[in-house]
């Protein structure tokens, strides 16, 4: 049992970058098709990463290097803890710690583009954190444990009890993945008002580390989506993969069809969705379970 958990955690550490990179590649391809472009090759993200990691390392402030390494470490740790079957709430606390390091790496530079991006990253955190914590609470209510190993053991998929929470989680996923309309802290194209926001001053190897961390994070977040679906029936894993594919497609669609909103709108809307969808769902759940 323990070894099973260990294997899944090791698999995560080893293969998450591969999966994350592939997902990124597929995403770019789909995006391109939506815009009637051919798009880059499927493996382009890997070529990009390889090139970034082989460049001469640069920094604006020396501490950036260690902040970015810590960021990567804690993102990997977050996912590792989840795949090890550990406490999901603690995972989320470690994830916020990771985000903090990214924030530090941006804010030490003195560049205003980077500093604005960093401040906005905090606002994004304020926008998604309540929903993320409520999701953990919702899992606990359904399964009586915060541990992912227990959460996946039920007879019925948690989504049956948690449709509202699921909707809210998908909503904040857009914020967490920094996709439009909530690409507040950074933007896809450097020719916009905040340049590349939080990543403006993160270059060459450090940007490679950032990309890698983003892939790990994507896999972790999609793993969270899978937690809504997986139950004791092995076939549910297949269902989870299908749901993940649909969710990811939806994210790309939203990304391509919406324009960036202001940060205060983001916070208000996401809090409203969290309160209405997740809060109401949990209220009903407590009413029926209690």
């Amino acid at each position: 049992m323990i070894s099973g958990k260990l294997i899944s955690a090791i698999c995560y550490v080893l293969f998450a970058p591969l999966i994350g990179g592939l997902i990124d590649g597929i995403g770019r391809k789909i995006s391109a098709r939506m815009q009637r472009r051919v798009g880059p090759p499927l493996l382009q993200p890997f070529y990009d990463l390889g090139k970034l990691l082989h460049k001469d390392p640069v920094h604006v402030a020396p501490s950036q290097n260690f902040f970015m390494m810590s960021y990567l470490f804690f993102i990997v740790m977050t996912g590792g803890m989840m795949f090890l079957g550990m406490d999901i709430l603690m995972c989320m606390f470690v994830l916020s710690t990771a985000v903090m390091f990214l924030y530090f790496a941006a804010v030490v530079t003195g560049s205003h583009y980077s500093a604005i991006g960093a401040s906005r990253e905090l606002l994004q955190m304020v926008a998604y954190e309540p929903c993320v914590l409520l999701t953990c609470v919702a899992f606990y209510l359904v399964r009586g444990s915060f541990e992912t190993a227990e959460i996946i053991k039920g007879d019925v998929s948690p989504i049956v009890y948690l449709p509202g929470v699921f909707v809210a989680f998908i909503f904040i996923l857009t914020i967490k993945m920094r996709k439009s309309p909530f690409d507040i802290s950074t933007s896809h194209h450097p020719n916009q008002e905040i340049v590349k926001g939080i990543t403006s001053e993160i270059g060459s190897r450090n940007f490679g580390i950032y990309t890698l961390a983003e892939w790990y994070e994507t896999v972790f977040l999609l793993g969270m989506v899978a937690l809504f679906i997986i139950n004791s029936n092995p076939w549910s894993i297949l269902a989870a993969v299908v749901v993940i594919a649909l969710v990811y497609f939806l994210e790309i669609l939203i990304d391509n069809t919406s324009a960036r909103v202001k940060s205060d709108v983001m916070i208000k809307v996401s809090w409203a969705v969290t309160l209405v969808a997740a809060g109401f769902n949990i209220l009903v759940l407590i009413f029926f379970l209690g």
Binding site: P57, S111, G203
Partner: peptide, 8 residues
């Protein structure tokens, strides 16, 4: 690691 100036 080489130190660079920030983009302003």
């Amino acid at each position: 690691s080489t130190e660079k100036l920030a983009y302003m």
